[in-house]
Simulated assay, not measured.
Amino acid sequence: MQSEAGEPIEILLAEDNPGDVRLTEKALERGKIVNNLHVTENGVEAMRFLRREGEYAGEPQPDLVLLDLNMPRKDGREVLEEMRGDPELRRIPVVVLTSSEAEEDVVKSYELSANAYLTKPVDFEGFVDIIERIEEFWFSVVKMPPK
């Protein structure tokens, strides 16, 4: 399955844990939707990707951002706040995908207009299930805004 325009879905994963990056890659490979996964390992790089600055100048705007909260240089909360304050980026759906179960992180993420907050499962099958559900919901069920 592809986007309505027949193009692969563009996903930005802002994640500093290489193990979680590999799990996400494997889960998306098993999914039913053709996608291009772009990875940044900190919040500064995520914002440079989103704004297509420097080495990211030719990159596509993502259809969805999977955002870890606890990253170096700029955390996910700061990335989310910057995205929602930027007219060019505010419509991109953001799914917070993090290990934090702290109530204050959940509340703050929704206050910053996250579209969803999910806690990463610790086992591979659980992680794959979450990624497949994200993929199915955001690209099969939801009507996405035009780019």
Rank of each mutant, 00 (worst) to 15 (best):
I92Y: 05
G54K: 01
L12E: 04
A116D: 06
K26Y: 13
T98S: 03
G126M: 08
A5C: 05
R84W: 01
E104C: 14
E101S: 09
D16R: 08
A102D: 13
A114F: 12
K120A: 04
A116Y: 09
L66A: 07
Q2E: 02
V79D: 03
E88F: 05
E132D: 05
E59T: 11
S99E: 05
E7T: 14
K26T: 11
V79C: 07
P87G: 01
R52G: 00
K26D: 01
P18Q: 12
V44P: 02
T24H: 06
L50M: 01
V141R: 00
S3E: 04
T40C: 09
D129L: 12
P62N: 03
P87Q: 03
R48E: 08
N36L: 15
I9C: 02
V96T: 06
F124L: 12
L28W: 04
G43S: 06
G85M: 10
E82D: 06
D105C: 15
L112A: 07
R52T: 04
P8F: 14
V106H: 08
E136Q: 14
S99F: 15
E81N: 04
P72R: 15
S109P: 02
P72H: 14
S140C: 13
L80F: 06
G76K: 11
G43W: 05
E25M: 13
V21N: 00
L69E: 03
D129T: 14
E15W: 14
R30I: 07
T98E: 02
V142P: 03
N115D: 02
V142G: 05
L80W: 09
P8R: 15
E135S: 12
L12F: 14
S113C: 08
V79A: 05
A102F: 13
M83H: 03
N42M: 15
R48Q: 12
E10Q: 07
E104P: 08
Q61D: 01
V128C: 06
D86L: 07
Y56K: 01
L64H: 09
G85W: 10
E7I: 12
F124H: 01
L80Y: 05
E101W: 08
V94W: 10
P18H: 12
K147A: 04
E29A: 12
G58N: 04
I130F: 12
G19I: 11
F127E: 01
L66V: 13
V106G: 08
N35F: 15
D20Q: 07
W138M: 04
F139L: 10
E111K: 11
R52P: 05
G19A: 09
I134V: 10
I130E: 00
F127H: 01
T24C: 04
Q61N: 07
L37D: 04
V122K: 07
V39N: 02
T98F: 07
P87A: 12
I130V: 09
R51P: 03
P8Y: 11
G126H: 09
G31N: 10
H38V: 12
P121V: 09
V21G: 02
G85F: 09
G54S: 07
E55V: 14
G76S: 07
E82R: 05
